[in-house]
Design a protein around this nucleic acid. Structure first.
Lengths: 325, 325
DNA sequence: CTGTTAGCGCATTCAG
DNA sequence: CTGAATGCGCTAACAG
């Protein structure tokens, strides 16, 4: 593995000239440029990027924190991020944290340690107070509403989307409304819960703790909904189900559990994944790809322009009425 | 941002002592260790990992090349890889290449440039002859059968799995068998095609070019199958569909196109994704998570033990009979 | 147990 | 246009 010095010697020039051609600087005579390029070719030279990173203080890499890889929600987001990163020739570090608090902080430590230039947090378990100090080391962006912090944010409003879905059901005549959620104990989960109670109250109805089911993440988790429904004295007539996969699982297995959708129970999914279109599930469209793309674009801007402060962007959602509610 | 030198000064020791406590070396007096730790804490020192990477020639990072992020096949694989990487405290670079040849080579260049310690290629467009030379710079593993090369490999045999699925259908009485595939023009696609013709011939039947449909990647692509079927003079009575999502899409929309499954047309999916269980799709189980985990484990072994040569592992598959064939 | 020293490979002033 | 010299921050002999 030759280094820049040996190339310089082979080409009969100085290391700075080699560095100049490596970095496409102007002001290098055509003759020397040729000599250097030949030497590089013959000696099979490859630049050691770690030295470049050390000297530049940048790595052209952004880390993405996400709890689970194998979940359509996060993958659509990731795809949006990756598409944008490609434009700027940035690399992505994929950090699966399973909502493990320590793993999240490890990633932030990589920022501190200059291994990465920025961090995108799709969902988290650590507190904002723990995260915010790391912004001293590089830009951090969260996919949730973050107010008055040194953190950027691209999100759509879970509160409003829940409000809108509940209102929709209410207007359809439903009074007993419940919901099944991936995770209650995080930023979006808590927002959804308040929206649930607030909205129903405002409409003159009320939410009930026993009509809230936690822990529905993927298609298979939908199986848990049925025993839960059967265990209730009074059942909801409509269900919000965060995640179209869960909603799809519910819809597909409902008949064998004695439920007709929407006659016995109406459902609204979330994310407008392909399967919801296929099955005709009423859902809420959030532009996940776009959110991901903006997330990266913002982080990138902050990286390249250090004066740039954190910025916050909210995305719109849209209820798509199909057949299940 | 203090560096190791300033910590040394603040603690009243030499840089090597600081380095020793940083790297948990033995042979440091308790008193000095304390002093160093205090200085680190007070000055908020963080090690610059780029310097460490430069000097060690390693980055504790492996890149994964995959064509599409948002696809369950690759995500299950990725999840397996990530789970194993976590054990060894390795980071993963996610490189979405969309089967773009140049993007693939860019990742291999990162290996050459010492940005990463190894590469896992889940699927590719570049030729093995292009890839193999890069093995001089670090271990490379492909998720396909690679013979007699300086490349590692963890795979399951697409040829055999196709053979087995076709034989299964044949024994069920099917004589007109077709298949719909994600991508014909890559390693697995070509293997499947030969298996298709070979197996049917061996059984005394024959395959037909017009019974092969390319470009079915996700659930929505299943829509293309119906017009294709309708366009055929003589139709297959059974279909292999690589990818359970596509099979699911087909199954769910078949009624509205006038097909009953399996009466009018039998189908076999691939990958044993959750949705195939839910819908009762006959499928081929390949242990994607395990393949991913082994892929990383092998790469890791090669990284840490440079004497270790490339190794090849084949995984078993299993046909799971459910209701669609 | 500890400090001195010599690089790791490269980019970049600063003179020429 | 070009080269010499300096340093990015750290690790690892080596000598005590």
């Amino acid at each position: 593995m030759p280094n820049i010095k040996q190339i310089a010697k082979a080409a009969g020039v100085s290391v700075s000239t080699v560095s100049r051609v490596l970095n496409q600087h102007p002001y290098v005579s055509e003759a020397k440029r040729r000599a250097v390029e030949d030497a590089i070719e013959h000696l099979k030279y490859a630049r050691n990027m770690n030295a470049v990173h050390l000297i530049k203080g940048r790595t052209q890499t952004v880390a993405v924190i996400l709890p689970h890889i194998n979940h359509p929600y996060f993958m659509r987001l990731m795809e949006g991020i990756a598409g944008e990163a490609l434009k700027y020739n940035y690399q992505l570090m994929l950090c699966q944290t399973a909502y493990n608090h320590d793993e999240e902080l490890k990633v932030l430590d990589m920022l501190k340690n200059k291994q990465i230039d920025g961090v995108i947090i799709s969902s988290r378990s650590a507190s904002l107070d723990q995260i915010e100090p790391y912004s001293a080391y590089g830009p951090i962006l969260l996919c949730e509403d973050v107010k008055d912090r040194l953190l950027s944010s691209v999100y759509f409003d879970h509160y409003l989307s829940f409000q809108s879905a509940i209102t929709f059901l209410w207007e359809k005549g439903h009074r007993n409304i419940g919901f099944a959620v991936n995770r209650l104990n995080n930023s979006s989960g808590r927002k959804r819960l308040s929206a649930y109670y607030d909205t129903l109250k405002a409409l003159g109805g009320s939410g009930r703790a026993e009509w809230v089911l936690d822990g529905c993440r993927d298609m298979k988790d939908s199986a848990a909904i049925f025993p839960w429904l059967h265990s209730l004295d009074e059942r909801p007539t409509a269900l919000l189900i965060t995640g179209d996969e869960v909603a799809a699982g519910f819809l597909l297995t409902a008949p064998e559990h004695g439920f007709r959708v929407p006659e016995d129970i109406a459902i609204i999914g979330f994310d407008n994944q392909p399967i919801s279109e296929l099955l005709g599930i009423t859902t809420i469209d959030i532009q996940l790809n776009d959110i991901g793309a903006r997330a990266f674009a913002i982080i990138y801007k902050q990286i390249t322009n250090r004066a740039e402060g954190p910025s916050v962007e909210r995305f719109q959602f849209k209820l798509i009425e199909r057949g299940t509610a």
